[in-house]
């Protein structure tokens, strides 16, 4: 049976991990490779690097990080942030990334997603959607709506999030990485209505992101939100919960989960 994926995510700036990671057994918690190895040993199902490097000139450092990670970690690696050209994608894949995540560039030119998936295959093109709620809660009897934002959540694009996910699937996206901007960073749980709405609208896998604070939140995103995978950052970085503890818990609650024996 296909298992639900648990994906730790690292924010990387100028080749270093930012948004603190606290592991007792790390020589250098700022080194993405060191952190990647911990997640690998714990049984992470995939790994995600989000590049938040501001200047274009320093982007080369990411290629080095990807390359050093691919040398030591043998699980799928997704890299996102600032990808705007086919050449950007080619360089990342050659360095050892398996998938790239595209956000702003997809909104500016939806044809870019088609071109990228034609060239590299749908399996390596992840479209990231940052969505913000603009309608009422379903629980209040209203019909919820969400709109997408670009440029790291700063610019509203005025596009309906569910329709956008459908269009991106049609354009050749292999997967959707869905972040709730309302929930992101709150640790109050994923936006389950958003996750379920997108997951039901598309036939490609959906990764839920934004808001994980407890193990129950992860369970809800997978069971109620019907996500195929969950992405989380701080819950793992501060060792609030280890990956293996997380997976054991979700497994005990009856979800299909890959357990790794160490």
């Amino acid at each position: 049976m296909l298992t639900k994926r648990i994906i730790p995510c690292l924010d990387v700036k100028d080749g270093r991990v930012v948004k603190g990671v606290s592991f007792v057994n790390l020589r250098d918690a700022g080194d993405p490779v060191e952190v990647a190895k911990i997640y690998d040993e714990g049984g992470g199902d995939e790994l995600c690097f989000l590049d938040i490097t501001a200047s274009h000139e320093k982007r080369g450092t990411l290629l080095d990080v990807v390359s050093r990670t691919a040398e030591q970690v043998f699980m799928p690696l997704t890299v996102g942030g600032g990808i705007t050209t086919l050449e950007d994608i080619r360089r990342l894949l050659n360095a050892g990334a398996d998938k790239v995540s595209i956000n702003t560039a997809a909104v500016q030119d939806p044809g870019f997603v088609s071109a990228a998936s034609n060239r590299f295959g749908t399996q390596c093109i992840v479209v990231a959607i940052d969505a913000k709620r603009v309608g009422p809660m379903l629980s209040t009897g209203g019909k919820p709506r969400w709109e997408i934002y670009t440029h790291g959540g700063r610019k509203p694009a005025g596009i309906d999030a569910v329709q956008w996910a459908e269009q991106m699937e049609a354009n050749g996206a292999g997967e959707i990485l869905l972040t709730s901007m309302d929930q992101d960073g709150t640790r109050h749980g994923y936006d389950l209505e958003l996750t379920a709405a997108v997951s039901e609208a598309v036939s490609i896998p959906v990764i839920a992101s934004g808001g994980a604070g407890t193990l129950d939140h992860l369970y809800d995103a997978l069971a109620v939100g019907k996500a195929d995978a969950v992405l989380a950052a701080s819950i793992f970085h501060y060792q609030t919960h280890s990956i293996s503890e997380t997976k054991t818990y979700l497994h005990q609650r009856g979800l299909p989960i890959r357990l790794v024996k160490n």
Partner: peptide
Amino acid sequence: PCPSQQSASLKIPHMGWNT
């Protein structure tokens, strides 16, 4: 088989860890 033809709606591509 595409998701609409299946009993359980399975996503395509088949992506992730399976036995």
